[in-house]
Design a protein around this nucleic acid. Structure first.
Lengths: 206, 206
DNA sequence: TAGGACATGTAATCAGTTACATGATTAA
DNA sequence: TTAATCATGTAACTGATTACATGTCCTA
């Protein structure tokens, strides 16, 4: 049967469970914060618990309570063979005719959005925002390097390490991109008020 | 008064209107597809119309029907002085104590997610997925360069051009990152089945 | 005169977040 | 004993998408 059309986040949560061992929702969240976060984003606790319930309903995971039947007892999840099959199917790009649009990278960059609107802001203020972003990104780079250091040398976890290495390079690129932004902003001539033509990339001249 | 807590998408739509001239929702969508898309994503038609209604309710834009009072007549929007003020405030990072988390870059990269899960897929299949992504990214790079060529030389639209230039460099970096991913995948030793330790970046060893 | 681009909108649904409630276990 | 961390969940909401409905205007 074809893989059910689950959102990537569901596959991400199932993916967390595809590595050996049982895990609680809480543990999954912590791990997502330390790895998934850098290239996909980490879902909120509430969403992880919701996805786990859905995955269990689909038979992709099973759960086991540690204590007796208390309503909120600690609950450990494990992937099932069906779950592993479905996940492998998704990881390979889905069975047969796959919608390429589903693989589209989503990027939402509020800092560049503000720069795009730069004609409305004081130049120093804009530069300050970009510099804050630079500092934040450097902080994230440090975090991904820590994660990488913890992972380094464990040859059995090759793929997560490749993803982490991608994340490191990605953040490094983001740092460079941000410096480029700063340089472009500094190279701008002082504002001269005016400007009345339609935007250059508006559809009217395309 | 402080800027109302609108989602960035609302500011993006208002930003589209901060450039001289009136525009219809339809035109806004086309323009978003040609510029905003590269660093923030372009909202759906239905959302653009919804945001325009909200912005009008807030007094940030006004609208004018071209024909008489037909219910679905073409409607052109223009920014108001209040809208311009609010937008300028947002672009400058908001008045006073701003939540830095609101400026967080969101990245959702399903291709890297699949690579992260690479232990479940056939190596050739995984490489094929990454190569498709490379081709898609190169196509996007071409698109942003077209947009840049249309914008080039129009000195009055400096900030949108900087954002476009950022987008070009960003896609170029993405191409390089993807090649790096491919190289890492090819450098992997042939699979040897096994592996039983917990993941290296799991919270248990952090 | 048929097809495509222009143009606006509704309905249904979903993904995902924040805020909150609750309580157990562990370490200072 | 008190605070932090572990742990699970509900409720309310919002952002955003897809599919659909409707119709005009222009051009080959």
């Amino acid at each position: 049967m074809p893989t059910s059309p689950l959102p990537p986040t569901a596959w991400a949560v199932l993916g967390l469970l595809s590595f050996p061992g049982e895990r609680t929702g809480y543990e999954l969240k912590k791990w997502a914060d330390a790895s998934l976060r850098f290239f996909y984003g980490a879902p909120a606790f509430s969403q992880i618990y919701a996805e786990l319930r859905r995955l269990e309903r689909l038979g992709y995971v099973t759960s086991r309570r540690s204590g007796p039947e208390e309503p909120r007892a600690k609950r450990a999840y494990a992937i099932t063979p069906a779950g592993r099959d479905a996940l492998a199917d998704w990881a390979a790009g889905g069975t047969g005719a796959e919608d390429a649009a589903a693989d589209a990278v989503t990027l939402r960059h509020p800092v560049v959005l503000r720069v795009w609107l730069g004609h409305l802001a004081a130049p120093e203020r804009l530069r300050a925002l970009v510099e804050e972003h630079l500092a934040r990104t450097e902080g994230e780079l440090k975090e991904v390097r820590d994660a990488l250091a913890r992972a380094d040398g464990v040859e059995a976890w090759a793929h997560p390490q490749i993803a982490l290495r991608w994340s490191e390079r990605h953040l490094l690129a983001e740092v460079e991109l941000t410096r480029g932004l700063l340089a472009d902003l500094e190279a701008l001539p002082p504002a001269d008020g005016g400007a009345g033509q339609p935007p250059p990339d508006s559809p009217t001249d395309g």
